[in-house]
Design a protein around this nucleic acid. Structure first.
Ligand SMILES: [Zn+2]
Ligand SMILES: [Zn+2]
Ligand SMILES: [Zn+2]
Ligand SMILES: [Zn+2]
Lengths: 158, 158
DNA sequence: AAACGAAATGTTATATTATAACGTTTTCAC
DNA sequence: GTGAAAACGTTATAATATAACATTTCGTTT
């Protein structure tokens, strides 16, 4: 993760994402409180996997007096609602690219720049499920992370 | 990872694993020093993913005066040689089940007991590779981790 | 053998990520 | 309104990992 390209989502897309989150939580009765919504907004806006302390810093920069548990609790909630995924290999959190869909996600994570690409996937999940059944493992629908190099980083990062 | 079942590999299997590591490193010219070999032995013996500090404690219990870098450096080396895999989702390290083979591994990790099962896989890797190519990602042959529940933990862990 | 440079290890300190524990406030059903 | 549950604030600490630099070991060259 050397040359981390800064990339922000367009405001319109952020608003759309948040509106969908509002609708989803309203439908399920989950409470997307202002605090949680603020954290989600920060995750969505960054448009890439972000660390918890990075989010915490942004919260503080906006005048919020918070401690780590604040952010981690919000992230836990957002993960439960399927609005955010944790990328274990990067210790980072990324907004789900298609929340609400009971999806089987495949997430490519670029080890150069830290960006991630989430795909709706059936083929990979099917082959994993088949292999899992063969050895008796039960696998829920959590996203599968795959490390790699993104197209931009394959060229000399322009 | 509540009821972590303790499980040790049989001494004969450990010796076999170490012998293979010796042969592999001899062939490539990599220096499997006593320290590195000792760390590998501890990883192999435990027969499941183990944390770096867990290994450090075991080193110390055997009279070795070491600090975290000691273990982390050895683990780095062992990973480079393909003798050990890091399980990102568990912050743990596990001995490769078939070192030397240029394998495409799929690792099922039980979130209940922490055990892991490494499989030689072609179907899953093939579908991942196809998907990666479609979006321009380049994916090296690192193991893919899949969270799940192992057969033993599905029953009431006997 | 002596000298040299590179690799490995020792050592200390610190960075990074995440959670425990407990008190206070807010929310919601009754 | 009242009580219970959920959410949030706050402090401290756990767990994981690395930076930085000194020392030792090792293989090679002279
Ligand atoms: Zn998703
Ligand atoms: Zn990239
Ligand atoms: Zn392996
Ligand atoms: Zn299990």
């Amino acid at each position: 993760m050397s040359g981390l390209r800064i990339k922000y989502l367009k405001p319109a897309l952020v608003a759309e994402h948040l509106a969908r989150a509002d609708a989803l939580c309203a439908a399920t009765g989950a409470r997307l409180t202002p605090l949680r919504r603020r954290v989600l907004e920060l995750v969505v806006r960054s448009g890439r996997p972000v660390g918890a302390y990075e989010l915490l810093d942004q919260m503080r920069a906006c005048g919020h007096k918070g401690a780590p548990p604040t952010v981690y609790r919000a992230l836990d909630f957002l993960q439960q609602q399927g609005l955010v995924h944790r990328i274990a290999m990067a210790n980072a959190y990324v907004a789900c690219s298609h929340p609400g869909c009971d999806h089987h996600a495949l997430i490519f994570v670029c080890t150069e720049c830290g960006n991630a690409l989430e795909l709706e996937e059936t083929q990979v999940k099917a082959s994993v499920a088949a292999r899992a059944e063969a050895v008796g493992f039960r696998v829920p629908g959590q996203p599968i992370e795959v490390a790699g190099t993104c197209p931009l980083c394959q060229e000399g990062r322009p």
